[in-house]
């Protein structure tokens, strides 16, 4: 039996919204420690790794490990019916073929209950081991989203060049070019506005703008995003949850 109660429905809403355009369905792996997902988009260019640790929940129990195959579009529709501030409880029996979803209004005496049919998903799993990191950038997630949107008007690719004291985002397209430079900044009054760059080796990588557009749908999950880059390797884009994370691994582009 799985039972997890979110203090606010908005958290699961944001998680599902951040994932549903990359992958249509995925397995939620539930253990006593929490819920995790690994899902790859159809082109196998973008991988999503989600961990919702037990401490994220107001209440959590999972007696036996269970895997719940979920259609994210369907889950999004049902979750959309609840108010952001509602308690949201998900539950499933062992060997269940449906996920029970309950919203409790915190003010009104109102309880809404839904069942989502579960799917049998035979998905590719990729072996993501620990990765070396040459450069790490942490910046406000809204700033990163704006950079990706602004650069996308120019090109299908976004080049990220990291040196000791700056990160350069560059797009070269048919209509022209764009450059945005960010530098480390410590904002004591507004720590969420701080920018940090740590570097072992300079980085010059290009990524598909289309995939970055999917990644920045996670912006509302966290005020900050951490980008880990390594030469000739997938980039890691991490949005922290209150306890856990939503991570995207994006394969870089290469010169023909």
């Amino acid at each position: 039996m799985l039972e997890g109660k979110f203090e606010e429905a908005s958290l699961l809403k944001k998680i599902v919204e951040a994932m549903k355009d990359c992958v249509s369905s995925c397995n939620f792996n539930c253990t006593e420690n929490g819920i995790s997902v690994q899902a790859v988009d159809n082109s196998r260019v973008l991988l999503i790794s989600l961990l919702i640790e037990k401490d994220t929940f107001e209440e959590y129990r999972c007696d036996r490990n269970i895997t719940l195959g979920v259609g994210l579009g369907s889950l999004s529709k049902i979750i959309g019916n609840g108010a952001n501030s509602d308690y949201l409880t998900i539950s499933a029996d062992d060997d269940a073929d449906k996920l029970n979803i309950i919203f409790e209004d915190k003010v009104k005496d109102k309880i809404s209950e839904y069942n989502l049919k579960l799917l049998d998903i035979d998905a590719d799993l990729l072996d993501v081991g620990p990765m070396d990191t040459d450069a790490t950038i942490t910046l406000p997630s809204a700033d990163f989203a704006k950079i990706c949107k602004d650069m996308k008007v120019l090109s299908e690719s976004l080049q990220i060049i990291v040196t000791k004291d700056s990160a350069l985002f560059q797009s070269v397209g048919d209509i022209g070019t764009g450059n945005i430079v960010i530098r480390p900044k410590t904002d004591i009054d507004h720590p969420e506005e701080s920018v940090t760059i740590s570097l072992d080796k300079p980085i010059d990588l290009s990524f598909g703008s289309k995939y970055l557009s999917d990644i920045i749908k996670a912006t509302s999950l966290s005020q900050k995003v951490t980008i880990k880059l390594t030469d000739q390797s997938p980039g890691v884009f991490e949005y922290k949850l209150p306890s856990g994370y939503l991570r995207f691994y994006l394969a870089p582009k290469f010169d023909e």
């Binding site: 799993l125 072996d127 993501v128 997938p234 394969a251 582009k253």
Partner: peptide, 14 residues
């Protein structure tokens, strides 16, 4: 031009 790599050369299928 640039081509998009897949994740498979890096991670491989389990």
């Amino acid at each position: 031009g640039e081509q998009q790599w897949s994740l498979l050369p890096f991670f491989g299928l389990l």
